[in-house]
Simulated scan of single mutants.
Amino acid sequence: MGPQQPPADDACPPGAWVDEELGGVRYGLAATVVEERTSPYQRITIIDSQTYGKGLLLDGCWMTAERQERHYHEPLVHPALCAAAAIERVLVIGGGDGGTARECLRHPGVAHLDMVEIDGLVVELSRRHLPSLGGDAWSDPRFHLTVGDGIAWAASAPDASYDVVLVDGSDPAGPAEGLFNRTFFQHCRRLLRPGGVFATQSESPEAFRQVHIDTVRLLREVFAHADPMYGWVPMYPSGWWSWTFACPDGPRYREPLPERAAAVAPGCSIWSPRWQRGAFEAVPAFVERALADAAAQP
């Protein structure tokens, strides 16, 4: 191995690291803090890194970055929107960085998208520092932003008012804690039209093992049909991540409709129908056993 090359002029100076600490492990980037603010809900940090570009942390936990976000947003959105019976009306709970809304609005069949984000400062800072994430979504006439409580929105919205419901929340703590419980999931099921699909990020099976398993179990109880899908978001704890999809009337989320998939797949960096098939089959043995044990219990 030859001598190590000196850092580029635009590299972060030695020792300038931003870390998330979880369970005795640090997940960090060489980065500088661009802006940090505290809202009524959480501490919001914008960083700039040489490796992943600008990024967002909430209460010290990694949320997204310019060169990582597609690893997360494409898997959350496209299995649901390529499979629901209709996609005219979509609800996104959370998602203040704009990436989920952007991917949804790439589907021409979407006529109306409600995004309910509890923290308006997340939206403000994301639009200022991470404009590529939301892209044209912020000005799309189909897009309707409400700064408010997504849990309350789900509880009060009319029955069968959405074709797809997506939950793009942070870890189950602070303002996102209520996004991982039976009452909230029951309301999300109530909101779905016939043939509708629900999806949520469901944490890392490594770094949040029990939360992940409990989430899948609970969604199967509430919706009757639910399956986790596995991929990777390298900046997140362990790098190994999951999304769980649910339907009351059968696992339609496993089979993308060819016409819808063809409309979006060429613009995707991660998701494709082939990738999705493998991701649904990549259930680790310990999760498969835990879910089988739960199903066998009276």
Rank of each mutant, 00 (worst) to 15 (best):
A157E: 05
P131R: 10
D140M: 06
Q276I: 07
T100N: 01
A226H: 07
E20Y: 10
D214P: 00
R127D: 06
G231A: 10
A224C: 13
E103R: 00
R254C: 06
D97P: 12
R193L: 06
F198T: 00
S242R: 04
F286P: 12
W232F: 14
A173K: 06
G267S: 09
H144C: 06
V123A: 08
E288Q: 13
G135W: 03
R289K: 14
P266A: 09
P131S: 11
A176K: 01
E206T: 11
G134A: 13
M229D: 04
E21T: 15
R254A: 13
T32G: 14
K54Q: 15
P266Y: 12
R189P: 01
S49M: 11
A84T: 07
A292F: 01
C247E: 07
D9Y: 15
L145K: 09
A154S: 12
G135R: 02
C104V: 11
Q276E: 10
P273Q: 07
P237S: 13
A263L: 14
M63E: 13
G231V: 08
R89C: 05
W241A: 07
S238D: 10
A279E: 02
V25N: 11
F143W: 01
T51C: 11
G98S: 05
I213C: 05
L179I: 02
G239N: 07
I118V: 10
Y253A: 12
S39Y: 04
R217C: 12
V165M: 03
R102C: 08
S204K: 05
A111H: 13
R102I: 10
W243T: 05
H73R: 00
D114P: 00
Y52M: 11
F208V: 02
P194R: 08
A11H: 12
V25G: 01
L56Y: 03
E117N: 08
G250A: 14
Q201K: 05
T100E: 03
G53F: 03
G150F: 01
P266C: 12
R274F: 07
A11C: 14
D48V: 09
E69K: 06
A86G: 14
G178M: 02
P131V: 11
